[in-house]
């Protein structure tokens, strides 16, 4: 009788759990969790700007920016690829060396990058890939007449690289990260040497104001070094960002350089409480 009960229970068990077992035995691997690593930053530093359309004199001053960064392992090959979105809104107020001229600058930068990741050591990885970027902004010189401002707009395709090292100092987890971006080709806006915005946008002579950009006329470089100090679920981000924007087109030189101290909050966002599933983090 006892044997019959065992056999009956086994049969019911097989019937009830058979589909589940069948799924579990499917060779398709379970998708890992890919938490979003995001950071919101406040950045303060100095900007130095020279634009010979406005003035041959370099302006320097306070630079304030707000940044957002979003990293996530890619869905199609989480261990090998990751995606990155960067948004930076930047504003600077500057003066010339004699102190009697003022210039304002504002930039909005957005970039999307896809990077191939190589795990070199436990907690250490490097990555390289491509990046598409959009820049909108301008410089405004408060003392000029018919050339008071110059708009900056560009779209780029470039290369980017990252290195990340996650370690513990005592019981404190730290993540050091370095990012570099280098646009290679793109298109950007520039007036001709002595062309007024009145002629371009009021009269309508806008031919040739969109230029093909490459390293012969445009070199930008963005460096970003950060450390995330993990405090519970969130991390305190400290860092340094450097942005170099240069163009040399139509005999007009633009050189804008930002050095910024970065302070922010970062962390990984799980859409639900992480179950006992494999996690592919961009931290380690």
């Amino acid at each position: 009788m006892a044997i019959c009960k065992v056999l009956l229970c086994s049969l019911v068990g097989v019937v009830l759990f058979c589909p589940g077992h069948l799924r579990a035995e499917n060779p398709q691997p379970e998708k890992p969790l890919r938490p979003v690593a995001s950071a919101f930053t406040l950045e303060i530093g100095r900007q130095s700007a020279l634009d010979t359309y406005l003035s041959p004199i370099r302006y320097r001053g306070l630079d304030i920016a707000l940044g957002y960064e979003r990293l996530r392992a890619a869905s199609f090959a989480p261990e090998k690829w990751l995606t990155r979105h960067n948004v930076l809104v930047d504003f600077a107020t500057m003066t010339n060396q004699s102190g009697n001229g003022s210039m304002l600058s504002g930039y909005l930068d957005y970039s999307f990058a896809m990077l191939r990741r190589w795990q070199l050591l436990d907690g250490l990885w490097v990555a390289g890939g491509g990046e598409a970027a959009l820049t909108l902004g301008g410089l405004y010189n408060l003392r000029n007449s018919n050339n008071p401002a110059t708009a900056k707009a560009a779209i780029d395709l470039g290369v980017t690289a990252m290195a990340s090292y996650h370690l513990r100092v005592g019981r404190l987890p730290l993540t050091f990260r370095y990012q570099v971006s280098l646009p290679v080709v793109g298109a950007f806006f520039s007036p001709a040497f002595g062309q007024s915005y009145y002629e371009m946008f009021y009269i309508g002579n806008a031919d040739g104001i969109v230029r093909f950009g490459a390293w012969n006329n445009r070199v930008d470089l963005r460096n970003y070094l950060s450390v995330d100090i993990h405090l519970g679920k969130r991390a305190l981000r400290l860092g340094y960002r450097q942005i170099m924007r240069t163009t040399h087109v139509a005999y007009i030189d633009t050189q804008v350089l930002n050095h910024m101290f970065v302070l922010g909050i970062s962390g990984e966002i799980f859409r639900s409480a992480p179950p006992a599933r494999r996690v592919v983090s961009v931290y380690y």
């Binding site: 041959p56 004699s98 003392r143 018919n146 050339n147 007024s196």
Partner: peptide, 19 residues
């Protein structure tokens, strides 16, 4: 001439016909 502006290292401003 549509005037543009520029400046000198000592801060003096110069306006001139540009276009």
């Amino acid at each position: 001439g549509l005037p543009f502006s520029s400046e000198l290292p000592n801060g003096w401003s110069i306006r001139f016909s540009a276009s």
